[in-house]
Amino acid sequence: MTTANTTGPAALTRGARAEATVDLAALRDNLAALRARTGGPAVMAVVKADAYGHGAVRCAREAVAAGIDWLGTATPEEALALRAAGIGPDQARVLCWLWTPDGPWRQALRAAVDISVSGLWALDELLAAVRETGVPGRVHLKADTGLGRNGCQPHDWPDLVAAALRAQAEGLIEVVGIWSHFAAADEPGHPSIQAQLDSFAEALAFAERSGARPEVRHLANSPATLLLPQSHYDLVRPGLAMYGLSPVPDVGGPADFGLRPVMSLTARLALVKTVPGGHGVSYGHHYTTPGPTTLGLVPVGYADGVPRHASNTGPVQIGGTWYRVAGRVAMDQFVVDLGGDLPEVGEEVLLFGPGERGEPTAEDWGRACGTLSYEIITRIGGRVPRRYVGGAAE
């Protein structure tokens, strides 16, 4: 057990089983810190995956209110949802980069969504939609500079660039962006970093020699935004860092980069009981009480996004004291061994927060589960209501 000097965050909403509190003031402060760190380049607020679990529309509106005029999404549905929520092209450009055949190209064109293209098949489908709708497309050509995921391979790049520029000459599209994505920017000194910087420079130079005049050239994700100024070009795309978590925890924590975690996850004790030594706890009895003790029941589980890998490891704070998950995390609940302590039923259980009050952080949970803080925050499910505080957009 670890004891803190304070009692945790603001109280749960009355009657709530669990709640994720999203500090929109911290979000704005993080964006300001990232803009100050990068200087000239524009900042794209990446709000894919429901803004990493924080709520895409609310976070996007907050980013726009803070002066951010680029938003990043993975799927077309995410991009269209932002437009449907009233975030118009006069407020922010929205880039969508994960397309599949027969996607909603027409809807995206009509909604003035910027479209990433990684291959000729996508360009062909987009051009068909442009001809049908009469709406020219804003295109970002993506180069695979070494990640081996989405993006156009170097040997196919000349054909894609040539086809895109032909379509531009016909007035069908405008090539407004050239971009790529790092594989290991979170590992300082990794040999792939310089290789990708060089590959991107070559892809960009070829496109520009061919006649492309992109509005934005962009490569930097969160770790590159923080650590690789040579990758910043015209636009940086912070995701995790925007939400106040460090993408390079071995280099520095959030405070080292002027960031504050935005989300706190809190639940309420549903039961406290005394049990004898040798008592099995939860499915499979993978934890057995070492002696007479008290157990606390926390009414969230893997259906709420608490990782099953947190079994016997996940940290929580109750009344200023740290405890660990005892036994298996179940679908709707887990147990902590309170070691004889007797908190009241209904007392708050802080799973993670900024850490400013001594509570566990998402990074602590990531380490306990053998995963990343990215996964911890993005997996918090829809059964957990979001409570927004500190907002300026509305």
Rank of each mutant, 00 (worst) to 15 (best):
T3G: 06
A4H: 04
A11M: 04
G15N: 10
A20K: 13
L27Q: 10
R37M: 03
G40D: 13
V47A: 05
K48C: 05
A49H: 01
G53C: 04
G53Y: 00
T75M: 15
A79Q: 12
A81R: 15
I87N: 09
W105K: 11
Q107T: 14
A112H: 12
A112I: 04
D114Y: 13
I115E: 01
I115K: 00
A129F: 09
R138H: 14
L165Q: 06
P191A: 09
S192G: 04
Q196H: 08
F200L: 15
F200G: 12
F206E: 10
A207K: 05
E208L: 00
E208W: 03
R213Q: 11
L228H: 08
Q230F: 11
Y233W: 11
R237W: 06
P238D: 01
G258D: 14
L259T: 02
R260L: 09
P261R: 01
L269N: 10
A270C: 12
V272Q: 02
P276N: 01
G277L: 02
Y283I: 11
Y287N: 11
P290K: 01
G291W: 14
G296P: 08
V298R: 02
P299N: 08
Y302S: 13
N312C: 11
G314R: 05
G320C: 07
T321R: 10
Q333C: 15
F334Q: 06
P343A: 14
G346D: 05
P354L: 00
E356R: 14
E359D: 06
T361S: 10
A362S: 00
W365D: 03
G370A: 04
T371E: 13
G381T: 12
